[in-house]
Computed example of a mutant assay.
Amino acid sequence: MTANSLNILITGAAGGMCEGINSRLAQAGHHIICLDLDLDRSEAAALKIREQGGKATAFAADVCDEQAVATLHQQIRDHIGAVQVLVNAAGILDRKYLKDSDAQSFRRAIDINLVGPFVMIKEFSEDMLQAGWGRIVNIASIAGTTGYPYPSYAASKAGLANLTRSLLEDFWGTGLTVNNICPGVVDTPMVIDSVRQQVRRRVPTGNIIDPAEIGGLVNFLISDDAKNINGTNMLIDGGATQLFSLFNNHED
């Protein structure tokens, strides 16, 4: 069914990874609905898309707040129309080992990385179910597959992977598909030099992932070429998951 132009809602749209996702989907002719917690940041992301010749609109909401998301849904319906594609990219990396962590920081990571996508999917899948077609793409991580030194992040991303698989029953025969993209190390300002060096030494391709590659994979998953790809974890990690040693702090 893929139309020439889809309304694509992207959470965390002001983040570094989303710059590549926003740009790639806008280049494909879609209307990008940029959502972030801060409206100024959302507006900046939307402006960058428009400066590149794309179509974008900015909104702000806390993805963990059910009432705020319900209000957002109505605002988007009133000003733009139904959302056909949801990309859950909002997330945080809580850089704490177990000894430095506490329940509060653990809950915050779970809230943003897992509860947020749940709230967004529950609310915005309504439009897709009514239309009989929709695409949901969750940005997870290889950390949800391999584990990670920061347990809150790994647990939240593993939960997101299982949430995605669990939704197959709800969306059975409805025309909706839901998939995870699980990146390795993506080239954003958050990546520290030591991690870049580890990628060059330990990832089979030796490459850090360009955010535009994530955008390309999202663009594929929302296309008719991917209509039978459903409930999957799509790895884009240069082979790092196979080695399981990218962040092995005990290796000399």
Rank of each mutant, 00 (worst) to 15 (best):
A3N: 14
L6H: 14
L6D: 08
N7W: 05
N7Y: 02
T11D: 03
T11N: 02
G12L: 08
A14W: 10
G15S: 15
G15V: 01
C18M: 09
S23W: 03
L25Q: 05
G29W: 07
L37M: 07
R41A: 13
K48N: 12
Q52Y: 04
E66T: 13
A68S: 14
A70T: 15
T71S: 05
L72Q: 10
I76C: 11
R77P: 02
I80N: 02
Q84E: 15
V87C: 07
N88M: 09
A89E: 10
D102H: 13
D102I: 06
F106R: 01
R107Y: 08
D111S: 14
G116H: 09
M120G: 07
I121Q: 12
I121N: 10
E123H: 08
A131I: 01
W133Q: 15
A140R: 05
G147R: 03
S152P: 07
Y153T: 03
A155S: 15
G159P: 05
G159V: 02
L163H: 05
D170I: 07
F171Y: 13
G175D: 09
N180A: 08
P183L: 06
M190S: 09
I192G: 00
D193G: 01
V195M: 15
V195F: 06
R196W: 06
Q197C: 01
V199K: 09
G206C: 03
I208L: 13
I214G: 05
G215L: 14
L221H: 06
D224K: 07
D225G: 11
M234H: 05
L246G: 04
F247M: 05
N248D: 15
H250D: 04
D252M: 05
